[in-house]
């Protein structure tokens, strides 16, 4: 290769490396802001501030959903299978909301450690399958073949 071109290529590689390192360090420093939500383990460890608007995400614990009789208030627990956080929410839940499904709740942690949500968003995983396959799997006793792998995401 021509020495001038080699020099230009070296400059470009340095430019790319420099920008890469700068962006890498910045995103590393801001990782808690880039993370969309706190998971239940972080909340249990006291990393999430109380009475500040934050997001909490995880799986809706099996058998934890309790709906109020008179209004749209729902109580459930969000878990990452290590810790879990009680959530209280009044309003219409997204269609995909169900036990064993992922959610991201927007709201505040009150002093009793309950997460009072203003908004609940459904988080689904990257797996798609026809209903018949899902039914067959359920019949075979596999509740959700992908649950384990998606918890950590």
């Amino acid at each position: 290769m021509h020495p001038l071109r080699k020099k230009r290529l070296t400059i470009i590689l340095f430019l790319l490396a420099g920008v890469g390192v700068a962006v890498g360090l910045t995103t590393y420093a801001l990782r808690q802001n880039i993370n969309l939500f706190y998971d239940p383990s972080q909340i249990a460890a006291g990393e999430a501030p109380a009475n500040v608007r934050i997001r909490a995400g995880g799986m809706v614990e099996q058998g934890s959903v309790v709906r109020a009789q008179q209004d749209l208030t729902v109580h459930f627990r969000v878990t990452d299978f290590a810790s879990s956080v009680p959530v209280q929410y009044t309003g219409i839940l997204p269609d995909l909301f169900a036990e064993g499904q992922g959610v991201v709740a927007v709201g505040r942690l009150n002093t009793e450690g309950t997460f009072v949500a203003e908004q609940v968003l459904a988080k689904h995983d990257e797996n798609y399958m026809p209903p018949e396959v899902s039914d067959a799997l359920k019949k075979a006793g596999v509740d959700n073949p992908y649950t384990e792998s998606t918890v950590t995401q």
């Binding site: 990782r31 969309l36 939500f37 998971d39 990257e126 399958m129 396959v133």
Partner: peptide, 20 residues
Amino acid sequence: WWNTLHQPATFKLTEKPSMP
């Protein structure tokens, strides 16, 4: 790398796609 609402990729070059 981060917690997101968006799910991970369904199509990956190295793995079987997670759909039929």
